[in-house]
Computed example of a mutant assay.
Amino acid sequence: MAYVPVPKDLTKVKTKVAFNLTKRQLICFTGGALIGVPLFFLLRGPVGSSAAAMCMMLVMLPFFMLAMYEKHGQPLEKIVGNIIRVTVIRPKQRPYKTNNFYDALERQANLDEEVYDIVHGNQKLAAPAVRKNRGKSCAAGQDQEKTVPRRQKAD
C-alpha cells in the first residue's frame, strides 16, 4: 500500500495553481522571463550567445530568489527588509528604558510642588513645610494649623 506524507501543520501547506507552482512563484518567474528573454535576444548579437546567456541568468536570478527562497516562513523581501531595518534605519545601541512607577509619582509630586509655588508666590517659605510634613500624622506632634493646605475652600 502506498503512503502519502501528510504534514502535521496544515498552515504551512501552500496551494498550487499551475505546473505545481504557487501563485507567487508563477508571478516571479513570469516577471523574470519578461525581462531576461528580451535581454538575451538584444545582447546575443553584440556580445555573443554565452555572454548574453550569463547576463540573462544574472538578471533573472533575483526573480528566482524572490520566488523560491523562504526562511522561517518569511519570503526574501521581508528578510531583506528586516536586515536593512536593523543595520541602517535603527540605531546600533538601543538602551533599555523603563517607565518606573515610583519615578513617575516623584515627578508628579515635584510638578505639584512647582505649581503650588507658582500659584502661591508669596508663600515660598511655607511650601517646604508642606513637603516635609507630607505623610506624617497629627499624632506625630505636627500641628495641622501650621501646615499650608493645598486647596482653599471657596467662600
Rank of each mutant, 00 (worst) to 15 (best):
Met1Asp: 06
Pro5Asn: 09
Val6Cys: 07
Pro7Met: 02
Pro7Thr: 05
Asp9Val: 02
Thr11Gln: 04
Lys12Arg: 11
Thr15His: 01
Lys16Phe: 02
Val17Leu: 10
Ala18Ile: 08
Ala18Ser: 13
Asn20Val: 14
Thr22Cys: 03
Gly31Ala: 08
Gly32Arg: 10
Leu34His: 04
Gly36Trp: 03
Phe41Trp: 15
Gly45Ile: 08
Val47Glu: 04
Gly48Asn: 05
Gly48Ser: 05
Gly48Lys: 02
Ser49Arg: 07
Ser50Met: 12
Ala53Phe: 14
Cys55Ser: 14
Cys55Asp: 10
Met56Leu: 04
Met56Gln: 10
Met57Phe: 15
Leu58Thr: 06
Leu58Cys: 06
Leu58Gln: 03
Met60Pro: 00
Phe63Gln: 05
Phe63Asn: 12
Phe63Trp: 12
Tyr69Glu: 01
Lys71Arg: 14
Lys71Gln: 07
Gly73His: 08
Pro75Val: 02
Glu77Tyr: 15
Glu77Val: 14
Gly81Pro: 00
Asn82Ala: 13
Ile83Trp: 07
Ile83Leu: 11
Val86Ile: 08
Ile89Ser: 02
Ile89Arg: 02
Arg90Pro: 01
Pro95Trp: 03
Lys97Ser: 06
Asn99Lys: 08
Phe101Ser: 07
Glu106Pro: 00
Asn110Cys: 07
Leu111Glu: 15
Glu113Ser: 06
Glu113Ala: 10
Tyr116Gly: 08
Tyr116Thr: 12
Val119Trp: 04
His120Lys: 09
Asn122Cys: 04
Ala127Tyr: 04
Ala129Arg: 12
Val130Ala: 06
Val130Gly: 04
Asn133Ile: 00
Arg134Cys: 09
Ala140Tyr: 01
Ala140Leu: 03
Gly141Leu: 05
Gln142Phe: 13
Asp143Gly: 03
Asp143Tyr: 09
Gln144Val: 13
Gln144Asp: 10
Lys146Tyr: 09
Val148His: 09
Pro149Tyr: 06
Arg150Asn: 07
Ala154Glu: 12
Asp155Trp: 03
